[in-house]
């Protein structure tokens, strides 16, 4: 169990630039150090998200992925390096993140996607970052987060486009879930391998996911709950649109409060 009661001198120095922020201060830093976050997917989105969350002092990061690092990943998956090619992504990411911040706990789960394992892990963390690359995983993560009322920070990127949203799943909010947004998906709109992606576009989305995760954990500012951030990097056009809950949604429809 995470139980940080005070900050050591070195921690005060390590986190000093964010402790200076009135939104964080020492109390907020202690909350981060006492928080657990699950990151599903250590690819283009999970790379920057995991690095910034590790650097910010999240007490425990749980990393879930079952792929191995390939040469074609390195253009965008910056938590991995050339030396990691052929290794499990989780092991590669743990190595990088431990070097970045050795004082936090990092748990690597190198396993194939499994709904039961996912539900167990989701139930024991304070927030989940969805950095996966397929709808099967996204729908399962959304459902597990809804059932356990665990905040979900969801991002996606392809080509020069990105989307980010937050699904808080707290009982007071009437916000939609991921399934409300992608309710009619019946065929793939395109894969990264077919369409390509500019690494920095995915990086931007992953960074926004890290920002939103810190805001959710510390409950400050206005998160993307109930809104979807749309990024068109070709024109650098960024919009936030308000989302509505689908009353017929098979996951959250009909559930109020």
């Amino acid at each position: 169990m995470l139980d940080v009661q005070h900050l050591e001198d070195e921690q005060l120095l390590r986190y000093s630039r964010q402790i200076m922020l009135p939104e964080i201060e020492i109390e907020g830093q202690m909350r981060l150090l006492n928080s657990r976050v699950l990151i599903v997917g250590l690819g283009a989105l999970g790379s920057p998200a995991s690095m910034y969350l590790a650097a910010s002092g999240i007490g425990e990061l749980v990393l879930m992925d079952h792929d191995r690092v390939e040469l074609s990943n390195l253009q965008r998956q910056i938590v991995h390096s050339s030396a990691s090619i052929g290794k499990p992504k989780v092991r590669s990411a743990v190595h990088t993140l431990r070097a970045l911040n050795p004082e936090i706990s990092i748990v690597g789960l190198d396993r194939a996607f499994d709904e039961r394992a996912l539900a167990t892990e989701v139930g024991r963390v304070d927030a989940v970052v969805d950095a996966t690359d397929n709808f099967t995983a996204r729908f399962a993560i959304n459902k597990a987060c809804f059932e356990t009322r665990t905040p979900l920070i969801s991002g996606a990127a392809i080509r020069l486009e990105g989307q980010v949203s937050v699904y808080p799943f707290d009982r007071a909010a009437d916000s939609p879930c991921y399934h409300c947004l992608y309710r009619d998906v019946t065929e793939p709109p395109g894969s990264c391998a077919e369409n390509g992606v500019l690494g920095a576009v995915a990086g931007l989305v992953g960074c926004i996911q890290a920002i939103e995760t810190v805001k959710v954990l510390l409950d400050f500012g206005e998160t993307l709950a109930g809104r979807l951030l749309l990024i068109d990097a070709r024109r650098m056009d960024i919009h936030a649109v308000r989302l509505v809950r689908d009353p017929a949604c098979p996951v959250c429809g009909g559930v109020t409060g």
Partner: peptide, 10 residues
């Protein structure tokens, strides 16, 4: 109008 942003169905 915006297109969907997500990867493959598996």
């Amino acid at each position: 109008i915006w297109p969907p942003v997500a990867w493959r169905l598996t």
